[in-house]
Design a protein around this nucleic acid. Structure first.
Length: 473
RNA sequence: GGCGACGUGGCCGAGUGGCUAGGCACGGGUCUGCAAAACCCGCUACACCGGUUCAAUUCCGGUCGUCGCCUCCA
């Protein structure tokens, strides 16, 4: 496959460092509150990438950190009279709960900064020994001027950056561009013992320390939002390569930002910004669908329109899976056909093969999920058409369903292939009652029953020889 | 000011030097007691101005506009 690397700014052929094993690290959220819906994008991108690599037969180790110590967490804790650890733990769990609802599974490792203080201190010591860092008062800073490649990821000129650089209060840096590796403890702050006294790690160092710990030097893919390119990832490179004396990462993968500026969203729904709120209003797979609909590197709109549209797209895929399942359940062969005859099922399987290939090509081209998704929709139309024509036998339906199931699985849309859950018996009873009314041509009563079923969140459809009840949403 | 991305049909959004993206919405039809689902048909675009080319939405230059980053925001 070919993967875009933000450092070289080009698509490159992706071959893992270790044969058969892909190593990935993504920057997760800082948990000072419920996560913003924007935090869901790198999570979804990384999980889909993992699934894709797995579909190619690779073993994948995906590490995604959770930053549970930083200024905002401390601020919130102090404002609420709680400990920073308590606030961090609460929202780290909320983050896991929220992303769990997306149904994509969990990264292989989700390290917390506070549980890796030892590794962080070790890395800082290495940087001091190699002359890349220095102690100043109770703080330790990285010496940017001593790292020749500084700026290579963000394409910034060090001299230019120096113009606008600010130095915060209480900081005593040799160069305004130097950044904190270790911050001496101030009153009311959580701290850990270190060779430089009690303090806490700077933001960037945890990712260098933890990614190296779990994935080693020169691992395959390091990802996160574009906005992290500078300073976060630039600094990670400086720290890691300064300490390792070797390349840190092989591919830098950055997802585009979400555009939430749509006034309709804020007007009608009151500024939905947290992932939690979105998931309370829309099916999780609809949000995943929205993410898949645009390329991961592109900026993306997120508003009520696109979410509602995605709900429709989810319905469409659900329907075709349900139709295939029904065909399988019905069993038997295809209805004899006048023109196309027995070859139609074969033709459909050929379409499946062609679509699978196009799907694979799209994903192999820098994870083009939008194009891959188009293949699934195309196949949905073809399968529906063949089903409607009665040209699909149960065996073919089984195969088509399995192949489509594999495709939606790679994209993390397993939910659309599911049975949709059991229909409550009383709903079934109402639908049966309705059938009797229809048979008796009591359409008024039949329509009342359908309305009642609809109010319970289900939809009854008349199909040849009976009826079908589906969850409305 | 510096770095980077981007301007596609009613909306979202892929992609390409000449060949239908896809979805949603909309209109017409088939089916149907009604409806839904599904299928068929229609809707055919590429900011603007130059240039290169037999041919540009697709390459090059410029203009206008939008967005992200430029010290701690995915």
């Amino acid at each position: 496959m070919r993967l875009y690397d933000s450092l070289s700014q080009e698509k490159k052929e992706f071959v893992p460092r270790d044969e058969g094993h892909v190593t990935m690290y993504f920057c997760g959220p800082t948990v000072y509150n419920y996560v913003h819906v924007g935090n869901a994008r790198p999570y979804v991108v990384s999980m889909v990438a993992k699934r894709y690599f797995e579909s190619l037969g690779y073993r994948v180790t995906l590490v995604e950190n959770i930053t549970d110590v930083d200024d905002k967490i401390i601020q919130k804790a102090n404002a609420e009279g709680r400990s920073a650890a308590e606030v961090g733990a609460e929202f780290a769990q909320a983050y896991r709960d929220d992303t769990d609802r997306l149904g994509l599974g969990r990264p292989d490792v989700e390290p917390l900064a506070t549980e890796h203080i030892r590794e962080i201190i070790d890395l800082i010591e290495k940087l001091i020994e190699s002359g890349h860092a220095y102690q100043s008062g109770l703080d330790v800073y990285f010496k940017v001027g001593g790292f020749a490649d500084y700026g290579k990821l963000s394409k910034q000129q060090v001299a230019e950056m120096r113009h606008g650089a600010r130095v915060g209060v209480g900081e005593d840096k040799a160069d305004p561009l130097d950044f904190a590796l270790w911050k001496g403890a101030k009153p009311g702050e959580p701290s850990w013992d270190s060779p430089w006294g009690a303090g806490r790690p700077g933001w960037h160092i945890e990712c260098s320390a933890m990614s190296i710990k779990y994935l080693g030097k020169g691992f395959d893919i390091h990802g996160g939002g574009r906005d992290l390119i500078f300073p976060h990832h630039e600094n990670e490179i400086a720290q890691a390569e300064g300490a390792l004396g070797a390349p840190f990462v092989r591919f830098w993968m950055h997802n585009g930002m979400l555009n939430l500026g749509d006034e309709k969203m804020s007007k009608s729904l009151g500024n939905i910004l947290t992932l939690r709120e979105i998931l309370d209003r829309y099916r999780p797979e609809a949000l995943v669908m929205v993410f898949l609909g645009s390329h991961y590197r592109s900026p993306m709109e997120l508003n009520t329109e696109v979410l509602e549209e995605a709900e429709q797209q989810v319905n469409r895929l659900r329907n075709v899976f349900a139709a295939l399942a029904d065909r399988v359940e019905a069993g038997g062969g295809a209805a004899p056909d006048e023109k196309t005859g027995a070859t139609t099922a074969v033709a459909l399987l050929e379409r499946v093969t062609a679509r699978e290939r196009a799907f694979a090509d799209a994903m192999a081209d820098d994870l083009n999920t939008a194009a891959a998704l188009a293949e699934i929709f195309g196949l949905a139309r073809e399968a529906n058409a063949a089903l409607a024509a009665g040209e699909v036998d149960a065996d073919t339906a089984t195969q088509v369903r399995a192949k489509m199931g594999e495709m939606v699985h790679v994209l993390g849309l397993d939910a659309v292939a599911g049975s949709g859950g059991d229909i409550p018996v009383d709903i079934i009873a109402m639908a049966e009652e309705r059938q009797k009314c229809r048979a008796a041509r009591d359409f008024t009563r039949a329509d009342e029953l359908r309305a009642a079923i609809s109010e319970r969140g289900y939809e009854v459809r008349d199909v040849p020889g009976g009826f079908k009840v589906v969850a409305a949403k």
